[in-house]
């Protein structure tokens, strides 16, 4: 955890150093810092997801829903990663588009769950 904070601080100093002269290098440094910090988080993320899978195995859930849930997590994270980086670089239009596409893919991924929900409701009422 300490390493992550240190990397973040060093990267911020490097970005501020280069923001005046070379803004594109500042963007490169912040991109590198984001990528490195997340690579650190990979280890803890795998263990958390393993525990989650174990928890889900206790309740009888149709196999597809768990996969959909994890896919939505991944899409949400990637969309947020890209849009935050674009907003940092000052391009809020591009980051808005990335967020919009992220929301659309999440909606598309979760379509089966919604349809099965309405099917169960329809079956109950008639």
């Amino acid at each position: 955890m300490v390493k992550v904070v240190l990397i973040g601080l060093v990267a911020v100093f490097a970005v501020l150093l280069m923001k005046v002269g070379k803004p594109e290098f500042a963007m490169a440094v912040s991109l590198a810092a984001c990528v490195l910090i997340l690579l650190f988080a990979g280890g803890t993320l795998t263990s958390v997801i393993g525990e989650l899978k174990k928890l889900f195995s206790y309740i009888t859930l149709p196999e597809g829903y768990l996969k959909i849930l994890f896919k939505i997590l991944g899409v949400a994270y990637l969309a947020e990663f890209g849009s935050a980086l674009c907003k940092d670089a000052g391009q809020s239009a591009v980051s808005g588009q990335i967020e919009l596409v992220g929301k659309l893919t999440i909606l598309a991924i979760s379509m089966p769950v919604v349809t099965s929900l309405f099917e169960t409701i329809a079956r109950m009422t008639w």
């Binding site: 990397i7 490097a14 002269g21 070379k22 490195l36």
Partner: peptide, 14 residues
């Protein structure tokens, strides 16, 4: 290796 990447990029930028 990780922190060196940021130093390398900063060095190239300067």
């Amino acid at each position: 290796m990780t922190i060196q990447l940021i130093f390398k990029i900063a060095a190239v930028g300067i």
